[in-house]
Write a protein that binds this DNA or RNA. Structure first.
Lengths: 182, 182
DNA sequence: TTAATGTTTCAGTAATTTCTGAAAGTTTAG
DNA sequence: CTAAACTTTCAGAAATTACTGAAACATTAA
């Protein structure tokens, strides 16, 4: 199963970017391959395309399933697992954002929340300046969390609307300023 | 230079989260320490607080400067470098987002752009389905890039406005739907 | 059942990333 | 200039992360 040259370039690029996106090379390559391929792919096919071991494929598939980015498709009368992308590009992106928000933001948010609580009325715990800074980070992370939660509920149509608007949050805010009398 | 216990907990937490945020443990710890400390810190003080080698501090400082998250402060009549956070929490967050967008999105965006161009009128290059999917990813990444650029231009006041609104993009879009007659 | 056809696990190995500390480099007071 | 006070670099060591492949496990057709 040798890959189309251009496709291979993108798949390998996904592999290289993977560590920046929060997973390892194999997971990145497999995600690329599965997302860009119309047909469901068996572990065997994936192994031939990417030259990786059976065990590695199994672990990467598990990881991609834990991110809910792929799912298993089965053909009647065939015991093999075939992997497919778990939705549209937009749905996959939502999934990645949600998962990354969970892993990159939530733990810090809860630690800070706890510390701000316990040091609330106890000046002996944190220096005032540190407390202020922690509060600032906390509030910002909370805002991001709200945004991400919001993005979860955005449908494709909303995305298209945003795309047509040409710019983002700032423009929308200006709009709001103009439209809402104060 | 031993650290306040609560502060230490956060600083170490920053170290643990660092790899998820795109840097290594030392860089994460140093960022935490510098951001939460009011006084400019020398390499020596940092070394004592975090128990890391001189070389490691130097490399981490370089990394943080390349992200524009810290800058060097010098006292007259003192040859030491003292490190300080390069702005408010919001400015630092903007910086991180901008840098991550550069590292996580731009390379993929340009590869895809190039491939979509060269395969535009050449059906022999990419399967139609792959081309579609690549286009979708490309468009979404472009939208993210626009959003991030927008965030660059948002001032603290805008952020506060957004925080007061309680939710994010979705609500603003609903607002727009209601206010703009079609 | 059972044998064939798969998948998963995991111990050991390989690859990659990070850290140390000594040597080289830089800056400035005198 | 020179020497003291710092900072940076970088080769090798340590720590971490990822990968392989063989053995264990699971499923199903006959």
């Amino acid at each position: 199963m040798s890959l189309n040259e251009d496709l291979q370039a993108i798949v390998y690029h996904f592999g290289e970017m993977a560590s920046r996106w929060g997973f390892n090379r194999t997971v990145g390559q497999m995600l690329g391959l599965i997302v860009l391929t119309e047909e469901p792919l068996s572990a065997e096919q994936i192994g031939q395309s990417l030259n990786i071991s059976r065990g590695n494929i199994s672990m990467a598939a598990k990881e991609l399933q834990s991110w809910q980015l792929i799912r298993v498709h089965r053909e009647p009368g065939d015991r093999k697992d075939y992997y497919v992308a778990n939705g549209s590009i937009w749905e996959l992106a939502q999934q990645v954002m949600s998962e990354r928000s969970k892993r990159e933001i939530n733990p810090t948010l809860s630690l800070m929340r706890t510390q701000l609580m316990t040091s609330e009325n106890d000046d002996s715990r944190l220096p005032a300046y540190s407390k202020q800074q922690i509060q600032q980070v906390h509030d910002l992370l909370e805002l991001f969390t709200l945004w991400f939660a919001d993005v979860q509920n955005m449908k494709q149509e909303h995305i298209k609307a945003l795309m047509k608007m040409g710019a983002g949050v700032g423009k929308v805010l200006e709009l709001k300023d103009k439209l809402i009398p104060r």
